[in-house]
Nucleic acid binder design. Structure first.
Ligand SMILES: Nc1ncnc2c1ncn2[C@@H]1O[C@H](COP(=O)(O)OP(=O)(O)OP(=O)(O)O)[C@@H](O)[C@H]1O
Length: 1005
DNA sequence: CATTGAAGGTTTTTT
DNA sequence: ACCTTCAATG
């Protein structure tokens, strides 16, 4: 395919230019050698960077293998490659040297490490390894240092790079301090020695050694034409050095960043690197991007009020291109569990009342720390909402996986004392800590590895001083040493045509250890789960083998005058990959196609975006975190979280947080406290006008009101009223006061019987099953109007005295007694309320933030709907609905945003219903096109192309992420998605459901 | 000296 | 709820 280009390269970069605004284009095409783009969130920095890569490769014809693109996370790297891949043909994106700083360094070291005396088979010491090594050193040398602190000291020191100076240790301080730093120094020395003996590099060493390599052998990078760096504000000293060295030949550097989004200070990121760049490269072309394409104005303004609390920050211009949109919400709840339940209820409400314009895939829950995910995961699991967890616990860090990995590491590199020490008694072989420690000591003293000591001892060459019992010795010899040697032999002796593969190695280890038995014995309760994890690991290894053979080659191009080492064996690569991957990523299709809510740490969410973002646990101690001493960084973290949202942003805060012991009272985050009045106190309502603006911002087609209401379950409340707005208010048990206010009168809310019984606890343990309860279908589609919706709603309310077995409304998964009294408040609307409203009532209400005094009295917007559409003519609801119905409305999906951004409004829609979208929905699939876009006038969005009616507001629950809650979740009677239980292999499907594994692939909508 | 059970202190963020 | 540490037992 590469031989016959389908399109001329030029065309690709030219069409790419169309997606850029003026400033972006200037940045992309700049012929300055150093280009620095500093701009706020959502201004298209990443888009610009990827476009510049395309420009360099396509228009300027740089060889892709001579272009280096560095990112900070594996996810960002993948995302970037995918994005570039869309714009560059012929697989050129796969040839780019693209990855995290660490993975790029690893590649250079693997290829040229020999030139600086590095053994090619070096392993990578992960955090656990480093900590273990250091605590042993501290103990042995009787240093009174905390291993964790020592680790961070060492890491900081390495991260400083060339900027490190001994003065950092403090010159002539008090004797004690000097002792202290000497202790650190000793520790550091010992640590490095130990790593070297084990042929290990820690994460920082990868960078340090790569810098060394590039300094001593500039030839390695003599081919490099350009270096591009994303999220530059997160670079640390050594990475800066590395950047310069990588670009030393042509000094062509492009960086993108935003000081306000610097959230890796704790990893020694230095914002000062920006200054440094300008000092070192005075000719740098500095470009700022000032338009925010991501968020509604309301979200952006709110986020800015947070970041502006930081007075030291350098102020930038950031203009929203979108409408004001919906006000963010700051919700108070009683407990963390309520908070999670509330999020679930909002997720459902958004999906239902947006008529599926926004689904699970569009929503993210962003957390300060991974531990906070507990409650959220429990609530999502209970509600049967699929989710993926990003950040936090890692698949490769599970105990059973680590054991297996350690075996692989020992096979790969037996001199890795730490790995060997960890598995020497796993499964139990009767050798305990004391003996192992003594053996390690002995090995260290005779400066050989534990492995060789053991070998010699077992062969009888040299009896270890440490006493080893006969039986123990036999077991170690027979089970462990034999296993390792045998597998090593098989790997070596294997014929080319029938290689002993990675999976074969794993299988052999599993069988010879009777790993399943080991798991059964060790983890009585959840050994099945653990075994499933192992199986998953096997699959990952398999994927890796194939992937490694097939798509991207991570080889560096040959350069003149410097010899590259031969390609390392697959085990080396696999282990490196495991260490450097933030988490496993699988290529499964099931998960890709399943719409899922994203649960992520804020750190891991950087650079991504979602239509809807929840930020729970916004309390003192969480944000800012109690253990952080950099308040500004914590604030920036919140800012990053807030600016991920496109149309809806929710922050929330419980009164009581669930900490380990019990519950503790917490206060609202000090970042939000002063600006709390800007937020709505409960979630917004979804009037058509408001939806229209959301649709416009997202570039999606808004479903008709009819289709929305057709699919609503009976009696579902349109409001955020499942939890009391004021959690401090006394709760009335048993009776539930109506929240249905009467929009036609200015009177306070009337009491009216609820549409459906809420006293039954029908909803308590049961999942809300959509589709089962949806309302009467209207017959006269063509004449369907707002007025008829009113009737419909009324009719629904009359019918709605459902049998007690039917959960008539969504009830939070908590006990029904928890439901308290709610009063209608600002922002609340009713089904009938907002349908009655017609466009003539629309005022420009949300164009300005309410003042604080506005908020004290009931806001009038229970009657006056919010956002105004900035188009000349007021939409007539009747015209709207019928006109719209002529078009086939496709099931809403995340549109390809680059394509969207590029397109101008379609003539069909332009002028007529501008309020729906400034750009047409996603391009029709071939199938859609065949059917004709105007074919189905009545189906609305509800008929998915698959022909299934009513895509569920909440899909059945796959439990794709697995923590300990997985078990709970299943016990809670979670329903399984029909689609997953394949008839031909239901056992496997079940297995899949249990799968703990979190796919990392996150689609940027 | 290894193993087992109970008590007690602990939870940031990532390569 | 989880891991490490400590004391008792085999
Ligand atoms: N010129 C443009 N026209 C329309 N949309 C754009 C344009 N440039 C970028 N966008 C859109 O704006 C959004 C944000 O882009 P991008 O992720 O590149 O921003 P960013 O500056 O990298 O954000 P962050 O700093 O938060 O990572 C994306 O959805 C992107 O498609």
């Amino acid at each position: 395919m590469a031989t016959t280009p389908m399109s001329t390269p030029r065309a690709e970069s030219l069409s790419m230019l169309d997606t850029l605004n003026h400033a972006q284009r200037r940045a992309v095409c700049s012929d300055a050698s150093t280009v620095a783009i500093m701009a706020g969130p959502g201004s298209g920095k990443t888009h610009t960077l990827t476009s510049r890569v395309v420009w360099l490769v396509d228009a300027l014809a740089y060889q892709p293998q001579n272009v280096i693109v560095a990112t900070f996370t594996v996810k960002a790297a993948r995302e970037m490659r995918a994005r570039i891949g869309k714009a560059l043909s012929h697989g050129r994106h796969n040839k780019l040297v693209l990855g995290t700083f660490h993975s790029i360094s690893r590649r250079y070291l693997a290829a040229y490490g020999a030139h600086i005396g590095l053994d090619q088979k070096f392993g990578i010491a992960d955090d656990g390894d480093s900590r273990a090594i250091l605590s042993r050193i501290c103990k042995r040398l009787q240093l009174s240092l905390d291993p964790v602190q020592a680790r961070s000291w060492i890491s900081k020191r390495k991260a400083k790079g060339s900027k490190w100076t001994p003065t950092l240790l403090g010159r002539q301080r008090s004797g004690e301090a000097a002792d202290f730093s000497r202790a650190y120094e000793t520790c550091y020395q010992e640590y490095q020695d130990h790593l070297q003996r084990s042929n290990l590099l820690d994460y920082d060493d990868l960078l340090v050694r790569c810098v060394e390599l590039l300094q001593k052998h500039p030839a390695c990078v003599s081919n490099v034409q350009a270096v591009l760096i994303d999220e530059y504000q997160d670079t640390n000293g050594i990475q800066y050095d590395l950047m310069r060295l990588l670009a030393q030949k042509h000094k062509r550097i492009t960086i993108v960043g935003d000081p306000d989004q610097s959230i890796y200070g704790w990893r020694s990121a230095e914002i000062a690197n920006l200054r440094r760049l300008f000092d070192d490269f005075p000719q740098t072309d500095q470009i700022s991007l000032e338009e925010n394409y991501r968020s509604s104005q309301a979200i952006l303004d709110t986020a800015l009020t947070v970041i502006q609390q930081d007075e030291k920050r350098y102020k930038k211009v950031l203009r929203p291109v979108h409408d004001r949109g919906t006000r963010p919400t700051l919700r108070r709840l009683k407990t963390s569990a309520d908070e999670a339940g509330w999020i679930v209820s909002e997720i459902r409400r958004i999906q239902m009342f947006s008529g599926n314009m926004m689904g699970p895939e569009d929503m993210a829950i962003l957390l300060r720390s991974a531990a906070l995910s507990r409650q959220v995961e429990a609530a999502l699991g209970k509600a049967g909402i699929a989710y993926r967890m990003i950040g936090g616990f890692k698949f490769y860090e599970r105990a059973e996986i680590k054991v297996l990995l350690d075996y692989l590491r020992v096979i790969h590199q037996p001199d890795n004392n730490d790995a060997l020490a960890r598995i020497i008694n796993v499964p139990k072989r009767g050798i305990g800590d004391t003996t192992v420690k003594a053996l390690l000591e002995e090995a260290e003293q005779s400066s050989e590895s534990l492995w060789s000591l053991l070998i010699k001892h077992c062969r009888g060459d040299r009896i270890a001083k440490t006493n080893i019992k006969r039986t123990v010795e036999q077991r170690i010899n027979g089970e462990l040493i034999r296993l390792v040697l045998d597998i090593q032999k098989k790997i070596r002796q294997t014929p080319e045509n029938a290689p002993f593969t990675l999976v074969d190695i794993i299988d052999e280890v599993l069988t010879r250890l009777s790993f399943d038995k080991y798991l059964r014995d060790t983890y009585r309760d959840d050994h099945e789960q653990r075994w499933a994890n192992i199986q998953e690991f096997r699959l990952l290894a398999n994927d890796f083998m194939r992937g490694n053979a097939a798509d991207l080659d991570d080889e560096l191009p040959q350069v003149d005058g410097l010899e590259q080492a031969e390609e390392a064996d697959i085990l080396t690569k696999f282990l490196a990959n495991v260490s450097l991957a933030s988490d496993a990523q699988n290529k499964g299709q099931d998960q890709e196609s399943m719409p899922m809510v994203t649960v992520s740490t804020i750190h891991a969410a950087k650079g991504l975006e979602w239509p809807v973002v929840f930020i729970p646990a916004a309390y003192q101690g969480s944000i800012p975190h109690m253990r952080s001493d950099d308040t500004d960084e914590e604030r920036r973290l919140l800012y990053v979280a807030m600016t991920r949202a496109k149309v809806l942003m929710y922050a929330s805060c419980p009164l009581l947080s669930t900490s380990y012991g019990g519950q503790a009272e917490v206060e609202l985050s000090s970042f939000l406290e002063p600006v709390a009045h800007i937020f709505g106190r409960i979630g917004p309502s979804f009037e058509p006008q408001r939806l229209a603006i959301m649709g416009k911002i997202l570039g999606r087609q808004v479903p008709t009101q009819k289709s929305i209401f057709d699919s609503l379950p009976i009696g579902v409340s349109p409001n955020d009223d499942l939890y009391p707005e004021d959690p401090t208010a006394a709760q009335v048990m048993g009776t539930v006061k109506s929240h249905w206010n009467d929009p036609s009168s200015g009177m306070p809310p009337q009491k009216r019987p609820r549409l459906v019984s809420t006293t039954s606890n029908a909803g308590a343990g049961e999942d809300f099953v959509p589709g089962k309860y949806y309302a009467t279908t209207m017959e006269q589609h063509a004449t369907f109007t707002m007025a008829s919706q009113l009737e419909f709603a009324a009719a629904a309310s009359h019918q709605a005295t459902p049998p007690m077995t039917e959960p008539g409304r969504i009830v939070p998964p908590t006990k029904s007694s928890k439901k308290g009294k709610t009063t209608a408040t600002a922002g609340q609307t009713t089904l009938t309320g907002f349908m009655q409203r017609n466009s003539t009532e629309i005022k420009t209400e949300e164009t300005a933030f309410p003042t604080q005094s506005d908020l004290r009295r009931p806001r009038p917007d229970a009657r006056i709907p919010g956002p105004l559409i900035e188009c000349g003519k007021k939409p007539d609801p009747l015209t709207l609905n019928t006109e719209l119905a002529r078009h086939k409305i496709e099931p809403v999906r995340a549109a390809k945003r680059m394509a969207q951004a590029a397109r101008s409004p379609s003539p069909t829609y332009a002028g007529k219903y501008v309020q729906f979208s400034s750009s047409p929905p996603r391009p029709p699939s071939p199938a859609d096109a065949a059917r004709g876009r105007t074919a189905d006038t009545t189906a609305g969005f509800q008929k998915s192309s698959a022909g299934k009616p009513h895509p569920a507001p909440t899909r059945a629950p796959p439990s794709l992420h697995n923590t300990t809650f997985n078990i709970q979740r299943q016990a809670a009677g979670v329903k399984r998605p029909a689609g997953l239980a394949r008839p031909h292999d239901s056992a496997a499907a079940l297995q899949k459901l249990r799968k703990p594994f979190r796919p990392l692939t996150m689609n940027r909508p």
